[in-house]
Simulated assay, not measured.
Amino acid sequence: MTTVAMITGAGRGMGLACAEVLADRADLLVLADRDEAGAAAAADRLRAAGARAEPFVVDVTDPAGVGELARHLAARGRLRWVAHAAGISPTMADWRTIVAVDLIGTAALLETLRPLAGPGAATVVFASMAPLLDPNPPDPAALAVLDDPLHPDFLERLREVLGAAVEQPGVAYGWAKRGVQRLVWREAVRLGAAGARICSISPGIVDTPQGRQEASAHPSMRALVERTPLRREGRPEEIAAVVGFALSEEASFLNGTDLLVDGGVVAALRGADGQR
């Protein structure tokens, strides 16, 4: 049977880098992105390199579109690998949209794809180092709300428990990505019954178009690069290499955990703050 890899956010940046890593592994790459031109260009690039690739236009916040994606994948063969890189960052939208794309969309995608997961299937979803930069322990009441992202009143409940602070895009982003990390814990238990597994990856500052947009709006990101022990930003291919390993047979016992790939900046900040 045809083995299928599906990558969201595949039109550019880390999503495209993930697709390139999986190109030699899958019989078919399905490149999902809401940007039709970007997905088509990525498919052309991968086909030119010898891969079998096809674009699929989808917005992860659209339940009908996500359902159509699942049906498309089921018709193509055995869904073996998923890299969910689609997401938005603080400069790109208001707080509601950030949470809807980065957390609610991720939860809905995983729920819709779960019936396609069989023995050996592996998924990596993108989180962020952002929650680990928050020095304050999270409120248990907020975590209880955060752990139910598909509740019909989720955004209102989150605003109620976190207050006006969540309307700041950076705060919303951090909470959304914390929710993704915690979602993976629960999803690992669900998928394990089918012999499938899932992890999240939390990149640090990475040199992508989206990362450069954030850096231009937030000069403080330069300070984080300077505090990074490796004294540089990451590269998309470095993040994709970790995703490729997490999805590989060599990582077949890796499940329900987050992989921090940040050049050591969180460790440096924790050390400076005396945290253990």
Rank of each mutant, 00 (worst) to 15 (best):
A194H: 10
M129Q: 12
E54Q: 11
T228K: 05
H218E: 15
V30Q: 01
L132P: 00
H72N: 12
G77F: 01
L132T: 01
N136I: 15
G264F: 02
H218C: 09
P135W: 02
G87H: 02
D262K: 00
A19K: 01
R157F: 11
V184D: 05
A223K: 15
G65I: 09
P131D: 03
I98N: 03
P149A: 03
S220W: 05
D59V: 08
T3M: 04
V30W: 01
R159W: 06
V66F: 02
I198P: 00
P149G: 00
L16A: 07
A117Q: 04
V21Q: 04
D139I: 13
R96T: 09
R114H: 07
L150W: 06
A240Q: 03
V124T: 05
G15T: 12
V66H: 01
R182S: 11
W81L: 12
P140F: 10
T61E: 12
R25N: 09
G67Q: 14
L259D: 00
L29T: 11
R78Q: 14
Q168Y: 08
L224T: 10
L116R: 02
D153P: 04
A74V: 04
L230C: 02
L191Y: 03
V206M: 13
R235F: 12
Q168P: 08
R190C: 09
A241E: 12
R71W: 11
A240K: 02
A165K: 12
C199V: 14
H72F: 13
I98H: 01
A17P: 01
E156W: 04
D62V: 08
A51D: 09
V101C: 12
